[in-house]
Design a protein around this nucleic acid. Structure first.
Lengths: 239, 239
DNA sequence: ACAGGCCTGTAACCTAGGTTAAGCGCAATT
DNA sequence: AATTGCGCTTAACCTAGGTTACAGGCCTGT
């Protein structure tokens, strides 16, 4: 049930069966939230974090004027507010983009597990560092890539990340975001996000219909994106 | 000599004198590098990380076409490639923006210290998480703020971060970046960075001359930036 | 003393992406 | 069956920021 999370961890490092048991035991309960629900409000004190089992979450920051920037998308297997374990409160909001199932992990259990298995402490530290790397790549996108390259890059990244946890099918995946939400990931207006998506369709690179994305031409899309997945740290790590 | 680093840590959490001794003992040597030197190349395997004692470093990512985005600026006290301890290689380059003094900390000593003092492991985990928060705020800037607001925000952030380590003077600080480097932080062209800087000067918010920045009107600058320092996690943390 | 490079500053012009507005389809509600 | 609302799409128009080019000042090396 938390298997998808272990799958993600094991892509990057060994997890012994003893460690696996300990990780499974950190889950206190499983919660469900509905699309558009605010799951964690920035600033509030946290005493637990969540592992995303199913569905999509977005982390985002807002400006006083209401402009929103999504700082990271999260898919099954992710630990979206693990940084809350050390930070105690988040600087970004977490919102459900679809109906979701969440495993709730109290912070004291994270503390316990990292004391008992210091290596798991490093594994989770590593995990927040990979999230930071994803966010750096986003800064590169927002600062330097064109709209079309940014969107292509996002689609490529999500393909790889979903593939790690076995949630792709036929060069495609469920993509529950509205175009408004997509535009908030890319630092674009909805109108221009739409134009950009049309252009990717016109070039026969992707299809997006009924919340399902199909990548028609992976090579072509990666080319437009100048996509290089090394920032995702997919190789095996000694931790 | 590594005191500036302890000063930064102590702003956010208690460090006992025993912990302090252990931290000091992690430094293997002190290196100097010259302005413009590439200090860490992305992708290369790391066996040590560095604490910045003096000077400024930039982390940046380049696109194949040569466009560069600075992902974070680092000042005295920072541990710019601490994420390399778990990631083993960086996804961003580290370049010296000025002459710098660096304390070299071998990874095995970080491993030792975190095994002996698990709390210090969490302190350093926290530290990389604050860096990630700084990078999220950058994404918000790049995605949603105007050029002038972005630049004002950067100047505010650096003021606060330098103030933590006692490197401000009279509402100002040494600012060694050229306008090109500044533009690479902000996702702007040099020409527009110059225009934007002129506008901040014209509004009597800042002066920048001879690599020295003076904030003429802190309130005004924070207003333009919509600056809220909570993402810097400056309060005391139990870790 | 001079040449060559960088850095700062400006000006003229251009374009990627923003703004505003409107229409269409479809699902949920009444 | 009509209504409301949301998401998608397109069009016309606008502007923040990009591009190109050039000039002056200051270092550094010869």
């Amino acid at each position: 049930m938390i298997t998808v999370h272990l799958k993600k961890l094991r892509r990057r490092t060994e997890i012994s069966s003893e460690e696996e048991r300990a990780i499974r035991a950190t889950v206190a309960e499983v919660r469900e939230v509905r699309a558009d629900e605010l799951v964690v409000r920035s600033g509030e004190l946290l005493t637990s974090s969540i592992i995303l089992l199913d569905g999509w979450l977005a982390r985002s920051k807002d400006l006083p004027g209401g402009e929103r920037q999504v700082t990271e998308l999260h898919v099954a297997g992710d630990f979206p507010d693990l940084h809350g374990f050390t930070l105690k409160r988040l600087d970004d909001d977490i919102t459900a983009l679809s109906d979701c199932r969440l495993a709730v992990v109290p912070h004291e259990r994270i503390l316990d597990i990292t004391m008992q298995f210091p290596r798991l402490g490093r594994v989770y530290w590593f995990s927040t560092n990979v999230d930071a790397a994803i966010q750096r790549e986003l800064s590169l996108s927002l600062g330097q890539r064109s709209a079309i390259s940014r969107m292509a890059h996002l689609f490529c990244e999500l393909y790889v990340r979903l593939d790690v946890v076995g949630r792709t099918r036929d060069s495609g995946y469920q993509f529950p975001l509205t175009q408004r939400e997509l535009s908030e990931c890319l630092g674009l207006t909805v109108v221009h996000a739409n134009r950009t998506l049309q252009e990717l369709r016109r070039r026969n690179l992707v299809e997006l219909e009924n919340r399902h994305l199909i990548i028609r031409d992976m090579r072509g899309l990666e080319g437009v994106a100048e996509f290089d997945p090394s920032y995702l740290y997919l190789d095996k790590h000694q931790l």
